[in-house]
Amino acid sequence: MNESVTKKNANLVRLLVFVVLGMFGFGYALVPLYDVLCEVTGLNGKVESSAIKEVGYEVDKNREITVEFMTALNEATPMVFRPEMKKIKVHPGEYYTVNFYAENKTDKVMVARAIPSISPGAVAEFFKKTECFCFSEQTFKAREGRTMPVRFVVNPEIPKEYKTITLAYTFFDNTETSVK
């Protein structure tokens, strides 16, 4: 192989290795891109992870939407967790507070995190919360049980075809992995 071919090969290999490293980075870049896409479009039932300021909407008294509440515990999370009511009929634009009860069944301090999900996914962008226990990790003392509120409003701009919204929370035991 003559010298010029060797040099051409070396240059090409350098370029291709650069492409490989770039694609490795691209794989990781997909993570924030995916989140951005979910947030922008409200797909995947991803809900805002922080509180919004309470703004006054015009209440639509003529419309009623049923909001259902579901609670679940991730595998091996030793807790009691239930909503105060199974469902509530709401008027779009009006604020409501619903309480959830959670209890640590162990004799140790537990750090747990509730992950929300909204179904159907497309309504996530119309479901606003000013207060939620899911916005941060919750620390429970041994055997502690407490009532925690969720304050929410359904944006009156929600398309007419939606008559039922399901709000689901899953508690995960993060005691081992919590950075606190």
Partner: peptide
């Protein structure tokens, strides 16, 4: 191959 194998390597590393 050079476009996709690094992405897979990234996924399993995650």
């Amino acid at each position: 191959l050079i476009a996709i194998m690094p992405v897979f390597a990234g996924a399993v590393t995650m």
